[in-house]
Simulated scan of single mutants.
Amino acid sequence: MPAPLFAAILSWVFLGERVRVETWAATLVVLGGIAIVFWDGLARGTWDGDLAGLVTALCLAGNFTILRHRKHIDMVPATALGGFIAAGFLLVIGAAAPLAPDGRDWLVLAVLGFFVVPVAFGLITIGPRYITAPEVGLLMLVETVLGPLWVWLALGERASALSLTGGAVVLVTLAVYFTWRLRGPRGVAAAQSSG
């Protein structure tokens, strides 16, 4: 997903935040890795999902930019309220016959709804207080790369060699970028001032 690129552009245009050169470089390399992952999907003709992913990336980037702009406001309660509204809506719609979950599905949904999603979105909501919107977008790409791994572990659907290559590009780039940011002169100074 190009969320980091969109977030960098939106932060620059609307917040006047200067995006560091190394952030632009990491974003472009990571997008190359994501393009490799999605090339496999495009070859299979899954354009609908790719278009939905593009729109989602733009919405996420806008969300990160707004959260960064109003970082003094705690938006975790609003995120929780949105989750409860969505859960209530899906509970009513999901109870319809073709979509009705069975016993095991309810357990999975409960774990997702009460633990995984609230913790994940709570941390995503807090993230822009401390790092830039493009950096939050970069971190979120770990989920894009690890998604096929979880699908393989849970459903036995193996990722292609092309997808694994793209994922490796993303993970190595993010590891190098964030290690450099934490250990570089700016990262050390920020850690000392907060400690």
Rank of each mutant, 00 (worst) to 15 (best):
P2I: 10
L5E: 05
F6E: 02
I9F: 02
L15I: 01
V19C: 10
V21W: 13
V21C: 05
A25L: 06
D40L: 14
A43F: 13
W47C: 14
D48T: 15
A52V: 12
G53K: 07
L54G: 11
L54T: 07
L58H: 08
C59T: 02
F64I: 01
K71D: 15
P77C: 05
A78D: 09
A80P: 10
L81K: 00
A86D: 02
F89N: 03
L91R: 03
V92D: 00
A96D: 13
P98T: 07
W106V: 08
V108R: 12
A110N: 06
A110F: 11
F114Y: 09
F121H: 03
G122Q: 04
P128W: 00
P128R: 02
I131V: 09
T132H: 08
A133W: 12
A133M: 05
P134S: 12
E135C: 03
E143A: 08
T144S: 15
L146F: 12
L146I: 13
G147L: 15
G147E: 14
P148R: 01
A154M: 15
G156Q: 00
A159I: 02
A159P: 13
A161W: 11
A161L: 15
S163V: 09
T165S: 03
T165W: 05
G166R: 00
V169Q: 02
L171S: 11
V172K: 13
L174N: 06
V176E: 04
V176G: 06
R183I: 13
R183N: 15
P185M: 10
R186C: 14
G187V: 06
G195S: 06
